[in-house]
Every structure is written in structure tokens, then in C-alpha cells.
Computed example of a mutant assay.
Amino acid sequence: MDEMVFFNPGDAIANSKDFGEAVRGAQIYKAKDPYESSLIVAEDVSDNKSFVVYFAKDEKSHVKNSDKSVIPYHLKKKI
């Protein structure tokens, strides 16, 4: 599952240098409110050792070249 996704870094729920820790954080967050939007664990394209958790609903589908507030990530896991 190495799909490219785009998010605004300010929308991040959590981040970590460890993939397992990012996934655990997302699972804990999801357990608190299971009816909230799905969560995405993504890997930063510019820093392959940094993982970030976002709400799936915050994904940016249309990215303009001039929009510097949106960053590409590699999708690693959906929760």
C-alpha cells in the first residue's frame, strides 16, 4: 500500500519516528471515538523515517502547485 496522499501538516493528529508507535497512537485515538473518520498513517516523502497520523477526511484531493501548505505523503496504513 504505497499510494501517494496529500495533507496539510497542521492537521496532523500525531507523529513519530517509529511506525509501530504511530500505529499504536492511531489505534488508541480511534478506540476513544470509533465513529470518527478513518485514520491514515502516512510516511513523510521528504523524511522517510517520519510517520504522521491524519483523519482520512482531511486528505487534500486537488493540490495546486502554488499551495505550499500541502505536503505529499506515502500512505502506509488505514485504520
Rank of each mutant, 00 (worst) to 15 (best):
M1G: 15
M1A: 15
E3D: 12
E3Q: 15
E3I: 08
M4P: 00
M4D: 07
V5N: 09
F6Y: 15
F6Q: 07
F6S: 12
F7S: 02
N8T: 10
N8E: 14
N8I: 09
N8V: 10
P9H: 04
G10R: 14
G10V: 02
D11L: 13
A12T: 04
I13S: 05
I13K: 11
I13W: 06
A14Q: 09
A14F: 14
A14C: 05
N15P: 00
N15A: 07
N15F: 06
S16H: 02
K17R: 11
K17Y: 04
F19D: 01
F19I: 02
F19A: 04
F19N: 02
E21K: 15
E21N: 14
V23T: 10
R24C: 03
R24N: 11
G25E: 06
G25Y: 01
Q27R: 15
Q27N: 14
Y29E: 13
K30E: 07
A31M: 12
A31D: 11
A31V: 02
A31P: 04
K32H: 06
D33T: 10
D33E: 12
P34I: 13
P34K: 07
Y35T: 09
Y35H: 09
E36K: 13
E36G: 07
S37N: 11
S38L: 14
S38E: 14
S38Y: 09
I40N: 11
V41N: 08
V41S: 09
A42I: 02
A42P: 03
A42H: 05
A42N: 05
D44I: 01
D44F: 03
V45F: 09
V45Y: 08
V45I: 13
S46W: 07
S46L: 12
S46Y: 07
S46Q: 13
D47Q: 11
N48E: 15
F51C: 02
F51M: 01
F51P: 02
V53M: 09
V53W: 04
V53P: 03
Y54C: 01
Y54V: 00
F55W: 10
F55R: 11
A56S: 12
K57D: 15
K57Y: 03
K57F: 05
K57N: 12
D58I: 00
E59Q: 15
K60F: 01
H62V: 10
V63P: 06
V63C: 07
V63L: 09
N65R: 13
N65T: 08
S66C: 14
D67N: 15
D67V: 02
K68N: 10
K68I: 06
K68P: 00
S69M: 05
V70R: 09
I71S: 11
P72T: 06
Y73I: 03
H74R: 13
H74L: 09
H74E: 03
H74K: 13
L75H: 13
K76E: 13
K76A: 13
K77E: 12
